[in-house]
Simulated scan of single mutants.
Amino acid sequence: MTGKPSFAELVAEGAAVPTEGWDFSWFEGRASEARPSWGYARSAGERLARAEAALDVQTGGGEVLAFALDSAAPARPALIAATEGWAPNAAKATALLRPRGAVVVTAPDDAPLPFADEAFDLVLSRHPVTPHWAEIARVLRPGGTYFAQHVGPASVFELVEYFLGPQPASARGARDPERERAAAEAAGLEIVGLRAERLRMEFHDIAAVVHFLRKVVWMVPGFTVEAYEPQLRSLHERIEREGPFVAHSARHLVDARKPHPA
């Protein structure tokens, strides 16, 4: 009978998995995350079915937009565009979205959106690095909507603090939904709805931890197996002894509207 994979085998497996795109199917059976009750991709599809011109900001590998477009079919906007800042993701998104009638534009996440004023009646985004409210407001038509799922404050910080130690209050409070409400309103948008949830995550082996930290690079900046080998080995032994490592993700749903001029 074959025994359990060793620490070295699990770490090597987690380090070998490609990280392009936002397809998390590899984690099946190795890690889990509860999903928000609002069903973002399905709801985005309902919005797309009613839109004329839509933009997906920071689309990743295009997986979420592709699902939303498929759920909206046959009703789709006449114009569908997406932006992505990381070249490997942009290439993957282009291959996935072009057959669905969407154009993918490679654009840095922190740069102005490469589109004309009031070009879209719907702007979508799932887990943007930073929402650029002034740019979102600029490219929205009056009456248009920004509909997005954002990462919330102290998301997966149980794992972050395991590797980096206690984080300052400024880090724990970043991405606060009420601060984002204020920033959106300062850019001229009206918040129609704002919902937040914290959701249970479980990591069942150290391979899942390694792959997650390689894929979501801002969690532990500069993460490498070599740099964190002692912490990884200790966590592996803890999981083997006690069961899955539990953390909690934070998500909030933003529904904002650009008002018509007075």
Rank of each mutant, 00 (worst) to 15 (best):
A51W: 00
Y40G: 00
G101R: 11
A34Y: 01
E63Q: 12
R35K: 09
A41L: 03
L97C: 12
V104D: 03
A31Q: 14
S43Y: 02
A78S: 10
A34E: 15
S32H: 10
A44W: 04
A95G: 12
A49S: 15
G45I: 08
A107G: 02
R47H: 07
R76C: 07
R42V: 13
R98N: 03
L97V: 15
S43V: 09
G85P: 13
V104Y: 01
R47W: 12
G45L: 03
A72V: 12
P108S: 14
S25I: 07
T83W: 04
D70K: 10
E84R: 06
R35E: 11
V57E: 03
E63I: 11
A87D: 13
A66M: 02
E84W: 05
A44P: 02
A72F: 09
K92P: 00
A107S: 15
A53Y: 05
L48S: 11
L96A: 15
T83H: 07
Q58A: 15
W38V: 12
E46R: 10
S43M: 05
T106E: 15
W26M: 11
L96K: 14
A78W: 06
P74W: 13
A102G: 03
A87T: 09
A72L: 09
A90L: 11
A78I: 01
R50Q: 13
G29R: 01
N89H: 15
A68M: 08
A51Q: 04
R100I: 06
V57L: 10
S32I: 01
S25F: 03
L96I: 09
A90W: 00
F67Y: 08
P77C: 14
A107L: 13
R35S: 14
A68D: 12
G60Q: 11
A34K: 10
A66S: 07
D70W: 02
A68L: 08
A91N: 11
